[in-house]
Design a protein around this nucleic acid. Structure first.
Lengths: 265, 265
DNA sequence: TGTACATTGCGTCAAAATAACACATAAGAT
DNA sequence: ATCTTATGTGTTATTTTGACGCAATGTACA
């Protein structure tokens, strides 16, 4: 049964509009997927999406308007799901296996929306996706589902359920890249609140790297970089000895991000 | 004046065929560009292409068949221009600025082939390109122009002329990535002939890094990796003291490539 | 109240990696 | 034969890293 476009419009929501109004607006066969990392309760979290037309979770993604840079499109995806702007965002790889897109998955989405295969041909074709990863402040993030057909949630990266298509592979590669880049740049400015403690920063590093670091050596190396400002204030309401609070010296931080580090963890 | 497809076929060559037979065969709006590095006369060389329909040089590139992995497409480009297979090839970044494709450039190509704008619409649209870089053995490479309308040449990376579109930016990023990855993996197996000397290998490293290294420290570090086999043979026909010849221990080399290095240059 | 316990802050020391440099050797050039 | 230039090997000082000791601080609880 083939529904008219008019009928379809009555059920409109973002995804539907995207699928129908494609040819003119979006770069064909190209998508963006974002691995959005946050840090909370000493856990590395990933922002994932669960849609009603699939029983698996997915990375937040989107399409690329034909007159927009792919980087801009990634910013749009990030902003759309987190409400955040001006955030650390980095392209890390492009995934273009011929069979990375399952026709079954595409068709189940079309089926869910009642879009005839003919109308949704663009959507069901082969897609190449550009992967970006982002580091955001967990507490400032307000996960924003688009429409009523999806749930957006922070999920501990150690408890990520099965993902659609090759999203698991994309996630893994993002984390692998982040681990690499820890040796080339400082991390934390985008992941931690303004005031934080050295042990918290260390936990962040340990979580990303997936292994323990020596407390004392960590302090030595992280302070040697010269991006931390020791505040005249201690963390309150904590068990045991209260750790000192620090903040990032944004100017020096940016400078080091630009020039790069030479050390390793 | 609009030529019929039949008339056009008489002037057929690869590019023409690519442009005309596009919609079914190729992923729309997506291309591959390869930065192919070679090493000769102590110089880092880049394989570039000069076409008759532009006064600027270009990186060898191609399109992505819809049922082929982008990695496969890159292999095809590499093999097509160098005749080589099984070579080190690595995706390093995707370039997707909205205005990276100039309509002027596309149209001049269409114009050159006498293809009406209508027929070549696919070709003149916005393109996103995936960048790969390759390391190949200069002496085993036979540059292969496609058809009579182009020249393929090795050019010293310090003497690269103006390139079309954003190819200069792509080239720079490739070299930047290669420099980074020099700290993560050994290099040389694909760039040098089977037998080589330590000074030659050092020149290669120096050329890539763009700075001098200490002879003695280099020897110590490169041998410590455990990928070199000292041959019972010296280089002949050289001025001054004849340096010893070495070869790579392919098994150990591959192993280190897989496991990665932890040191730096 | 004061003792046990967990965590932080600061420091030490040995080992390893890196950088800087000295000297003997080989082979063509004169 | 001697000079020049580049290679092969070794030495030493400096820096970086890794492993660990111990006092200080604040909670928990007898």
């Amino acid at each position: 049964m083939r529904l008219s476009k008019g009928v379809l419009i009555t059920r409109i929501n973002h995804m539907l509009k995207t699928i129908l109004d494609n040819k003119e607006e979006y770069q064909p066969g190209l998508s963006i997927d974002c691995v959005i990392f946050g840090f909370h309760d000493n856990q590395l979290k990933v922002l994932l999406i669960k849609t009603k037309y699939s029983d698996k979770w997915a990375l937040p993604g989107g399409f690329v308007p034909v007159n927009e840079d792919i980087d801009e499109a990634a910013v749009t995806v990030l902003h759309g799901r987190t409400g955040l702007k001006g955030i650390f965002l980095r392209q890390f790889s492009t995934f273009g296996a011929a069979r990375r897109c399952s026709v079954d998955v595409s068709n189940s989405v079309l089926d869910f929306y009642g879009i005839p295969l003919d109308e949704g041909k663009w959507y069901a074709s082969r897609f190449v996706t550009v992967g970006y990863y982002a580091l955001v402040d967990f507490l400032q993030t307000v996960p924003q589902p688009e429409g009523n057909n999806e749930i957006v949630e922070w999920i501990d990266h150690n408890a990520v359920p099965e993902l659609i298509l090759d999203h698991r592979q994309i996630l893994d590669k993002a984390l692998e890249t982040l681990r690499m880049e820890l040796n080339l740049m400082p991390v934390g400015y985008n992941l931690l609140p303004e005031k934080f403690t050295i042990p918290e920063l260390q936990k962040l590093y340990e979580t990303i790297l997936g292994r323990k670091l020596d407390r004392r050596n960590f302090l030595r190396k992280i302070t040697a970089i010269g991006i931390l400002t020791k505040l005249d204030e201690k963390k309150s309401n904590v068990a045991h000895k209260a750790p000192n609070l620090y903040s990032f010296d944004k100017e020096k931080y940016e400078e080091v991000v630009k020039n790069g580090l030479t050390q390793g963890w």
